[in-house]
Amino acid sequence: MLSDITIGQYFPGNSFIHRVDPRVKLGMLFFIIVAIFVLDTRADYAVFCLVVAALVQSSRLKPNMLLKALKPLWWILLFTFIIHLFSTPGTSILHVWIFDMTIEGAEKGFFLCLRLALLIVFSSILTYTTSPLALTDALEEIMSPLKHIGVPAHELAMMMTIALRFVPTLISETDKIMKAQRSRGSDFTSGNILERMKRLVPILVPLFISSFRRADELAMAMEARCYRGGVGRTRMKEMRISDTDYMALFIFAVILVILIGLKAVGI
């Protein structure tokens, strides 16, 4: 059922990776993404894969959770691979009609897919090991210098926090309404697309009504507690850079140096 879905995808834990400051993690993810695009030698790819393995090992995530993260992209990956396979000039292995399947194409396709997969996997490791709240807090901190040029960093982060907070609520609400309508003989699994869309009305209308009511109540509750935006607001949990973070940054720097070194040598 719907209630079996995990959104936010955070798997609580207390590993080294879990304990690294979310700002540091976000920063590292940014550099890793840049690195994946810039550093494209085979040895670099090997290092990236080793890093993924090490991260999975130390954060005690189950490897099949990463496969699950890749699942929605399966078709895109396959498509990318096939396009490259047939559109790259080189040594032909198979000739189909006007297309040539080439060794160079297979290689290029494989590495591009690997690159895409690495992007997803690294981002998933971040969301798997960082609670959504910690992530939005980190985003707010990172965006806070932009406040001076009028970017409402706090408001944006608050909106994200609230949205994330209500995802499980909305899912359970949807689940409940679906069950209620199914008990009244509604069937969501058969019929053509048009019929299925029509059947969503009995779910969406109650869902919208309860969402508006909830938003109203939340606004009232926030006002009752004198919420007035981010100015002068302090935090209950201050984020501090700790030894763990220095350690993480050090390891990260070593990995980057290795990656750049490999690229420079050109293996």
């Binding site: 309404i177 209620a180 309508q181 008990s183 009244r184 779910i203 209308v205 109650p206």
Partner: peptide, 21 residues
């Protein structure tokens, strides 16, 4: 099956339509 707060399942324009669902 009558769930808790069943009024949350109402969606039609009129009471009669909703009950006829």
């Amino acid at each position: 099956m009558v769930f808790q707060y069943p009024e949350n399942q109402l969606f039609e324009e009129t009471v009669a339509f909703d009950i006829a669902f």
